[in-house]
């Protein structure tokens, strides 16, 4: 019979125990478990995830352990014959508190969720960052996310034109 808990080793060499149920919420760990059936139960290495971030991931998995499996929605054309943006509303109060963290932590969790392939958590982090972008000017976005402005004046003029500039200089 399979053990009820799984050991994983994080990037900072910490060994952390997590329940099989939580481990299986990560497609990456799940695949590793399936590949290692019958083999000696060694700690699964997670070289891209720190113990601090993994604990956050486990917190999220604990809260959402009884959620139904996410379903891939089929994209549909709207009345304008365009595909709509995904809904960025975060409705769960617990999730709202969860994303109320420093940007560094949010980005680390997003990267971890992507690596571990935890769909619900990955989507939550993407929604949060998308909502963070709303209402910010380019300078504010660059400052917040540490992005360098490598656009030339020609690039910007082309973008202005693309976005319907009606000024004579563009």
């Amino acid at each position: 019979m399979a053990s009820e808990s799984i050991s994983v080793t994080t990037s900072d060499d910490q060994t952390i125990q997590l329940s099989r149920k939580h481990a299986q919420m990560s497609q990456t760990i799940n695949s590793m478990l399936e590949d290692s059936v019958g083999a000696d139960q060694e700690a699964i290495p997670l070289p891209n995830v720190s113990s601090e971030v993994l604990k956050k991931v486990i917190d999220w998995c604990t809260h959402h352990e009884n959620d139904p499996a996410p379903v891939e929605k089929v994209k549909k054309l709207n009345k304008k014959r365009e595909y709509k943006a995904k809904n960025s509303t975060i409705s769960d109060e617990w999730d709202k508190n969860f994303v109320n963290a420093e940007l560094r932590v949010i980005v680390d969790i997003l990267l971890a969720a992507n690596y571990l392939d935890v769909k619900g958590l990955f989507e939550l982090m993407c929604k949060h960052i998308a909502n963070e972008l709303k209402g910010k000017t380019p300078d504010q976005i660059r400052e917040r996310f540490g992005i360098q402005d490598d656009l030339t004046e020609e690039d910007k003029a082309a973008m202005r034109k693309a976005w319907g500039a009606t000024k004579n200089d563009s």
């Binding site: 365009e82 709509k84 943006a85 995904k86 809904n87 960025s88 940007l103 560094r104 949010i106 980005v107 680390d108 997003l110 990267l111 992507n114 990955f122 993407c126 929604k127 960052i129 998308a130 909502n131 972008l133 709303k134 910010k136 000017t137 380019p138 976005i141 660059r142 996310f145 540490g146 992005i147 360098q148 402005d149 490598d150 656009l151 690039d155 910007k156 973008m159 693309a162 976005w163």
Partner: peptide, 29 residues
């Protein structure tokens, strides 16, 4: 924060309506 790779920005942007994609267009290539 660590910089996000382009494929993750693609996922993030999929949650933004078209009008909200205007500003990011002016941040970087």
């Amino acid at each position: 924060a660590q910089p996000l790779p382009p494929d993750l920005w693609t996922e993030v942007f999929s949650f933004l309506p078209t009008s909200d994609l205007c500003v990011p267009c002016f941040t970087s290539k």
